[in-house]
């Protein structure tokens, strides 16, 4: 019996797929794995594992946190850069913050709920970390667009006509009450602290440069 052409074609397709699966999906990876067993490659192929005595303590090329249970730095170790993998350095949940260059307004924590920590903007994360590192190392951790308290220095500016006209009200968006805002007044208007749950969507988010020295890529302490 002769099969109709379209069925024959799909059968050929299925057989082609199976043949390629065996060749490129089984033979190829296993062959590479076999080659990777030779000395000089095996260490890397197994994950560059580092042993102390009998126990494996790390992979030489994967970062790990040098912090205690509460997240405070263990000062005897070199502190490595922050990690966005899971809750930090978790190889089963790799990834990035994905926050953009204008991620400057925080979602404030709910004061009534201790478990809700809010969602800090990228700017606030940068400011907080910089201040922490500065304290730890005894250097100046201040940065442009950061408040002295380590939040993003961003004002929500309300204008009379939406985005134009005289300023009617100013809120420091990343400083939750009762924090005293980093700036007393803006264009003659007193700056308020931010209240959780208040609607600031009509305000124009305005980052404030401040007078911290510009950050060079490799900044040396004076």
């Amino acid at each position: 019996m002769r099969l109709p052409a379209w069925i024959a074609q799909h059968l050929a397709a299925l057989r082609a797929l199976l043949v390629l699966t065996v060749l490129t999906g089984v033979v190829y990876p296993l062959a590479v794995t076999a080659v990777a067993q030779i000395p000089g490659l095996k260490y890397q192929a197994d994950g560059s594992l580092v042993k102390i005595g009998d126990s494996t303590v790390a992979s030489a090329i994967i970062g790990q946190g040098f912090v205690d249970k509460d997240g405070n730095p263990l000062v005897q170790y070199f502190q490595i850069r922050p990690s966005d993998a899971g809750t930090g350095w978790d190889p089963t949940a790799t990834g990035a913050s994905n926050l953009g260059p204008e991620s400057v307004v925080d979602t404030l924590p709910n004061p009534a709920d201790k478990n809700k920590v809010g969602r800090p903007s990228l700017l606030t994360q940068v400011c907080t970390r910089s201040l922490k590192v500065g304290k730890l190392e005894g250097v100046d951790g201040s940065r442009p667009y950061c408040t002295p308290g380590g939040a993003g220095a961003v004002l929500g500016v309300f204008h009379r006509d939406g985005s134009t006209g005289p300023v009617t009200r100013v809120v420091s968006l990343n400083e939750a009450c009762p924090t005293t805002p980093f700036l007393a007044s803006y264009q003659g208007v007193t700056v308020e602290c931010a209240r959780f749950g208040a609607d600031y969507t009509k305000a124009v988010a305005t980052p404030v440069r401040g007078d911290a020295p510009a950050t060079r890529r490799y900044r040396r302490t004076p």
């Binding site: 794995t33 990777a36 490659l41 890397q44 192929a45 126990s55 494996t56 303590v57 790390a58």
Partner: peptide
């Protein structure tokens, strides 16, 4: 692999970090 990429069929290794 020579550069450090892994190639094995292991389910992974649990390590106890220095901290």
């Amino acid at each position: 692999v020579a550069g450090g990429a892994i190639q094995n069929l292991s389910a992974g290794t649990d390590v106890h970090t220095l901290a």
